[in-house]
Amino acid sequence: MRKKVLEVQDLKVSFHTYSGEVQAVRGVSFDLFEEETIAIVGESGSGKSVTAKSLMKLIHDPGEIKPSSKVFINDANILEYNTKKLNEFRGTIVSMIFQDALASLNPTKRVGYQVAQSLKLHTDLSNTEINTRVLEMMNQVNIPAPERRIRQYPHEFSGGMRQRVMIAMALINNPKILIADEPTTALDVTVQAQILKLIKKMQVQNKMSVIMITHDLGVVAGMAERVLVMYGGMIVESGTTRDIFYNPKHPYTWALLNSVPKLNSDKSEELYSIKGSPPDLLSPPAGCPFAPRCEHRMGICNRLMPPKYSSEDQHTVSCWLMNDKAPKVDLFKRIEVGYNG
């Protein structure tokens, strides 16, 4: 049995805006084990980014992590850490890399300086030792001519290179957990592949666990062992990658998979898209967040939030269709009700 490195219990995050309280994350729970990669998938507004930031308590006014939420790392609830402990644990046990590498790097400081920061903050290493370590790191992330590069500024790097710099910066202290918030969204496809390969390599080398936040199912397929599908601030389905891809049980997951255009599809088929738009998190619906857009919507779906049903092999689904009383539905078959055909 692999050891659990992270456990999230009932994470709830809201933002207090001018118009009211936006419930971005409405009760998310999951586990992360040693050396595994999980992916959190969802569209914009599903709450995945906010979830990621909450894991390091990076949510500030007007955002609020509700007191009932718990994030256990090494058996301690980091949400209860005081500032000193928080600063100690960030960058050493958990690190994060962000989507826009250019925006995430200080434009007025040299790259070498920035990569070294984590070491300066958390260790007592001398400057020479730090320098050696930085160069080592730059090599590991495959940045050529590192001695020259560390004296340069972020805008002198290409997109892919910058992302590597961010990775170097985040991993220089060998964190146990890496949270990658859409690290490849802003990159070209070929560069994407390189970066993902790099992350994988670093993971194996450092024996890290990785949480990959993305909306790209291709990334999920290549990188993750388990997937959490988020919608409307909640996890609607979770399971192994294989299970989710081949045996999705939640209508949203199925619709998501189906929206990806296939190369070998019949040219006369229309591209499938999910009608409607994400729920208004200012006043979230009482029932299942996906109900308004769901083709298999039932009476109870509008009324009550579905509980978490689990089937074999760690596959959990929050959908009323899983209830014994519900009619059996084969998601892969087309049903006349509401399909956009």
């Binding site: 930031k53 390091m56 990076l58 500032t83 000193k84 600063n87 100690e88 644990f89 960030r90 960058g91 050493t92 690190s95 994060m96 962000f98 826009d100 925006a103 995430s104 790097l105 200080n106 434009p107 007025t108 920061q117 984590s118 903050l121 958390h122 961010m166 910066m169 985040a170």
Partner: peptide
């Protein structure tokens, strides 16, 4: 800016963020 959040994520304290990063860049 994102780089302030990124710096916080590697362990900068609020004071360090204010004086070492925000102040310097805001003065430009």
């Amino acid at each position: 800016q994102d780089y302030v959040l990124a710096a916080e994520s590697i362990g900068f304290s609020r004071t360090q963020l204010t004086f070492k990063i925000i102040l310097r860049n805001a003065m430009l």
